[in-house]
């Protein structure tokens, strides 16, 4: 068990030469639920003490993380994008409840295929900002690609 954590960490740091100003790395995966239903999974690996924010931050607080899925003829979105539990705190600065993620965050979007077992790509954009205790990096957009096969 311990071994896995160790080498996942290694894999991240080996590639982390420009991590200083880019504390979040995104990876995507696709899980088959049935011939017509798939789950798109976007995972964020968050380094150090940086925070990534929930999709549901009240207005007037930090900018929430948002996903935009480019629609195409092959699929329909089913429901909203789910996210993990994260940490919810009563933020003393914004005076509101704020949910954020540390270390890792997983977002999942179910989709329905128009044709069973079809193969195509879903393009998406995630916009997010990150902060630690003393600074914030401005909102940033990252392109995500999900390969349905």
């Amino acid at each position: 068990m311990k071994k896995i954590f160790l080498f996942l960490l290694l894999a991240i740091s080996a590639n982390g030469f420009s991590q200083i100003m880019n504390p979040v790395k995104w990876t995507t995966a696709v899980k088959k639920i049935s011939a017509t239903e798939y789950e798109l999974i976007a995972s964020a690996t968050i380094s150090g003490n940086w925070h990534l924010y929930s999709q549901n931050v009240p207005k007037g607080g930090p900018s929430p993380t948002t996903f935009t899925f480019e629609s195409n003829a092959n699929y329909l979105k089913k429901g909203n994008t789910n996210e993990g539990a994260g940490h919810t705190v009563n933020d003393p600065v914004f005076k509101m409840k704020i949910t954020f993620f540390e270390g890792k965050a997983v977002f999942k979007q179910r989709i329905k295929l128009k044709k069973p077992n079809s193969k195509f790509k879903v393009n998406a954009v995630v916009e997010y900002m990150t902060c630690n205790d003393s600074q914030c990096l401005p909102p940033k957009e990252v392109d995500l690609v999900f390969d349905i096969k």
Binding site: G60, G61, P62, S63, D91, V93, F94, M129, C131, N132, D133, S134, Q135, C136, P138
Partner: peptide, 10 residues
């Protein structure tokens, strides 16, 4: 600074 920046507001 920015309105959404907690450390700035603090």
């Amino acid at each position: 600074w920015a309105s959404w920046c907690g450390p700035c507001r603090a």
